Amino acid sequence: MDDVDVTLGPGSPSDLAAAISRSARAADGFGLDIDATLAWVRAVGPDVASASHSAGWESLAAAAAVDVAGARMLEPHVDALQILAQAARADAVSTDAVPGEDATWGVFAAEGRGVSVRAREHEGRWVLSGTKPWCSLASHLSHALVTAWTAPDERRLFAVDLRAPGVHPHTGPWVSRGLAQVVSAPVDFDDAAAAPVGNDGWYLRRPGFAWGGIGVAAVWWGASLPLTEALARAAAREGADQLAAAYAGEADAASWAARAVLTDAAGRAGRGVDAPAVLAHRVRATVAETADRIASLAEQALGPAPLTTDEPFARRIADLRIYLRQHHGRRDLAGLGRKLVAS
């Protein structure tokens, strides 16, 4: 890597992670120009999706080290490709659910108060109706995997052409200062055609659900790496005091702990684990706390100047803090506790 080390295994970063970093740096408008970034995502996505856990998570981290929003566009596309591949191996997806290589994918699985999407069979085909919240880039993507309720207590995953009749993406509200260009707004479905991917509950119960969650954590860690490097550079400046060294040391130790957790998770995922959901909860909690702490250290140590005069630094801080809200703090820790009690 040119600037940061995203290695999660012995030796150097994977060839794929190195290539992802180079290509992201070379891409015009990476992370800022949505169409250009999605073209890049479409080109590199299959390689990342088919990589080992270690190489795949390194690649997501490498993209985030270049630009957080760029990695935010890559991660769900890779997740969708992996889900479709898992469904194909399980003979749980029809060929009409998988478009050509020109597709760009989102995964819309969030639920919100007062809104929901229902799936029903109508004249021999499945259709979706209702409103799905938090659908990132729905106005720009070609396809999405969408969860919908098929019964009061069962959800199923469906592949949807976002440009087909009956699909109506909202353009807002989205006033976020972080990830400002990655609009996450509702989508209305009005008897929109959908192709089932797996049976009821398959999406949430498969081990790949945990690995996708850890992939997000890898992005959080990668996004924090340039902040750790900025603290190290500040500590190395002439006249830097002991406090600058302490900030750099704390950030480095925290980042190393997150790296160790991701490395261990990659090994366990490769060997197979009995409780992948517990592992994912542990990893996400550890990495989210680490990335948030490193952002705070960077703000404290470097002061207001880079936040007000260094656009890439200020955008990285804002983007990372919004992305970290995908971890729900104490609520996710409570979920981990419940899983531990149940097991």
Score class of each variant (00 low, 15 high):
Met1Ser: 12
Asp5Ile: 11
Val6Glu: 04
Pro10Glu: 13
Ser12Met: 02
Pro13Leu: 07
Asp15Ser: 08
Leu16Ala: 05
Ala18Lys: 01
Ala18Arg: 11
Ala19Ser: 13
Ala26Ser: 12
Asp28Cys: 10
Gly31Arg: 15
Ile34Met: 08
Ala36Trp: 07
Thr37Gly: 11
Leu38Tyr: 06
Ala39Gln: 11
Trp40Ile: 10
Ala51Gln: 12
Ser52Ile: 10
Ala55Gly: 02
Ala55Val: 01
Glu58Ala: 03
Glu58Met: 06
Ser59Pro: 11
Ala61Ser: 14
Val66Tyr: 09
Ala71Glu: 15
Met73Trp: 13
Met73Val: 07
His77Lys: 13
Asp79Val: 08
Leu81Pro: 07
Leu84Met: 05
Leu84Gly: 02
Leu84Asn: 03
Gln86Cys: 04
Ala87Lys: 07
Ala90Gly: 05
Ala92Glu: 04
Ser94Asn: 12
Ser94Arg: 13
Thr95Ala: 15
Val98Ala: 07
Gly100Glu: 12
Val107Gln: 04
Glu111Ile: 03
Gly112Ala: 14
Val115Asp: 01
Val117Ser: 01
Arg120Lys: 08
Glu123Val: 07
Gly124Thr: 05
Trp126Asp: 01
Gly130His: 00
Lys132Glu: 00
Ala138Val: 13
Ser139Glu: 15
His140Asp: 11
His143Lys: 08
His143Thr: 14
His143Phe: 07
Ala144Gln: 02
Arg155Val: 02
Arg156Cys: 00
Phe158Met: 01
Ala159Trp: 10
Ala159Met: 07
Val160Ile: 04
Leu162Trp: 02
Ala164Asn: 02
Pro165Phe: 09
His168Lys: 06
Thr171Ser: 15
Ser176Ile: 02
Arg177Met: 08
Leu179Met: 11
Gln181Val: 14
Val182Arg: 08
Ser184His: 11
Phe189Asp: 04
Ala192Asp: 03
Ala193Asp: 13
Ala193Gly: 08
Ala194Leu: 04
Ala194Phe: 04
Asn199Gln: 12
Gly201Met: 03
Tyr203Asn: 01
Phe209Met: 04
Ala210Pro: 00
Ile214Ser: 00
Gly215Ala: 09
Gly215Met: 06
Ala218Cys: 13
Val219Gly: 11
Trp221Pro: 15
Trp221Thr: 03
Gly222Gln: 14
Leu225Trp: 05
Leu225Ile: 03
Thr228Phe: 01
Arg237Asn: 02
Gln242Cys: 00
Leu243Ile: 05
Ala244Asn: 02
Asp252Ala: 15
Ala253Lys: 09
Ala253Leu: 14
Ala257Ile: 10
Ala258Gly: 15
Arg259Pro: 09
Leu262Val: 02
Gly267Glu: 04
Gly267His: 03
Arg271Asn: 05
Asp274His: 03
Ala275Val: 03
Ala277Ile: 00
Thr286Ala: 15
Ala288Lys: 05
Arg293Lys: 14
Ala295Pro: 01
Leu297Val: 06
Ala305Thr: 14
Leu307Met: 13
Thr309Ala: 09
Asp310Pro: 13
Pro312Ile: 06
Phe313His: 14
Phe313Cys: 04
Tyr323Gln: 12
Asp332Gln: 04
Ala342Arg: 12
